[in-house]
Write a protein that binds this DNA or RNA. Sequence first.
DNA 1: CGCGGCTTTGATGTTCATCAAGTAAAGTGG
DNA 2: CCACTTTACTTGATGAACATCAAAGCCGCG
Lengths: 226, 226
Amino acid sequence: MNNNCEVCFYRSFLFDNLEKKEFALLSLARKEIDYKKGEIIVREGEKISDFLYLKEGLLKVYRTVGPRKEQIVGVAKPMDFVGLLSVFSKSNYQYSISTLEDSSVCAIPLDLVKQMVHSNGDFANTLLKKMSEMNDQILNARLDINLKNLRGRTAYILLMLSKEVYKSEKFDLPVSRKEIGELIDMRTENVIRILSEFRNDGIIKIEGKGIEIVDMERLEQISEFG
Amino acid sequence: MNNNCEVCFYRSFLFDNLEKKEFALLSLARKEIDYKKGEIIVREGEKISDFLYLKEGLLKVYRTVGPRKEQIVGVAKPMDFVGLLSVFSKSNYQYSISTLEDSSVCAIPLDLVKQMVHSNGDFANTLLKKMSEMNDQILNARLDINLKNLRGRTAYILLMLSKEVYKSEKFDLPVSRKEIGELIDMRTENVIRILSEFRNDGIIKIEGKGIEIVDMERLEQISEFG
DNA sequence: CGCGGCTTTGATGTTCATCAAGTAAAGTGG
DNA sequence: CCACTTTACTTGATGAACATCAAAGCCGCG
């Protein structure tokens, strides 16, 4: 909390344009909430009252499609503006959000954000930009995934986790095989099969949730071709 | 042109909040351009200089993925804000846009729009809302399509055209079978096959590009089940 | 310590892409 | 305006990719 806050906001690039007074208002109004891995932050259909910002951790945004099936829309890491998805268009959440890792989320009353958009033109433009970027990113990911075959998708998700989330070729999967499947539209069994294939081909090492990418180049080719 | 303009803008709900002066500025700066069916309005990679608004007609937004393959991102009808896709996040277009029917497009210098966002808080909030809606719509369409099988997708696209675009159960397809395939991720041959299937089952009538939905309820079930 | 969910592998079936081939329609140039 | 070329449409046959079903071991958790 506290002045920790300033560091956090500055890093976010979003609140740069705020005046001291506005910034103070924001710091005051915001709430920081810690979640354990696996907790649900928002449920589809709930009223939107806050603008959410992921300070630390990893989230999944998803919608429940059948009685027992989920479709993952995306994964959000710090600096991503999770809440930006439908915050300004709907009064209720379109998607559910849960934590894939222990996470800290900052909640800023939506009214306050709108008020700041109203009063601070620079902030409004920055927010537009951020929102546009976020949406582009999510949409492009979906479009890319649609073009790939299962091997390509599996490679894609491994590379995404390695490069964008953990920034290391060695990391622990934050999700189950089942969830990977939901994320890239494939069955659990095939996720497993293809991961094993990659292991047998010497492209990755697997130890439970632990993944090490051994042959990065080859994985990139597989993702590309898809 | 001329006072035609006022009617158009009022209908759009976007420019409601502008003051007289701003509105006049906008009316002055905007350019209206007419396109024939099949023309390309913007090409992937081109510099974004204007905010585009479809006044009349039908557009497709797409990206070229291979040497001879396109992936259609969405179809835009009047009142949709085509340009909203990556206008604020990138300086160059991520997607190409072409006309599916004769169309009139209004182009407003992007700088002017940003300036208005800056100076008019209500406008900024409205724009945020519009943009969010547009993105939700596109993303949801992709997510929905991904869940459906080929019959479901075909039903989905027919219903979309019937209900959202033409508002009639009888209409002419604005696109080729190939383009339908690109829009809902399937091969031309299968589009044809399934359309024929629907015809044989008495769900639709086909005459070249002409489509008539005979059994709406059944089509909705097929789309739903997916 | 036992139950339920996750993981893994194998066998089987379905869906859909691909290939092929022919007809119809729509441009294109002389 | 007609031959020519190209593009769109259509149907059938085949095969590959992927989903589904089944069964068993594993692990964490109450």
